[in-house]
Design a protein around this nucleic acid. Sequence first.
DNA 1: GCCAACGTTGGC
DNA 2: GCCAACGTTGGC
Length: 154
Amino acid sequence: MTYWLMKSEPGEFSIDDLQNAPGGETFWDGVRNYQARNFMRDDMKVGDGVLYYHSNCPETGVVGIATVCREAYPDHTAFDPEDKHYDPKSDPDNPRWCMVDIRFERKFERVILLRELRQHADGPLRDMLLLRRGNRLSITPVTSEEWNFILSLE
DNA sequence: GCCAACGTTGGC
DNA sequence: GCCAACGTTGGC
């Protein structure tokens, strides 16, 4: 089993939105970055743990956890000209983009702020991809050590 | 709103 | 294959 960190803008889809979704599940559409796609397509398995991260908001940080509940399948929003994430270069017969489903697991008692994670950038989180300068990847792998440490901060 | 960092596109 | 221009991400 692998662990992941997935970013979402709470104005688009927050952890509360996930909790309130039918069955607490949603499909993770709109990924249009090859590295992030490859993580989903090649490495994400049902049961993997997900740190749910809020980006681009007043309190950026990890807000809770989810689990992967369906492995990669085509992202249909790429075929829809009306969709914000429409990509005319994604051929329905050979889809360029994919998505996974995730299920709400738990919302943390408090937000574990990015600022707080950075305080451990010389220690337990020294290799965390999220903390790398200029990192913009919306999906990054997390080690079990990082996962356990972040959960211990709560 | 600003801007640094990054990814993608396309001319050559 | 190089690289400038452009668009996007995301912290602040």
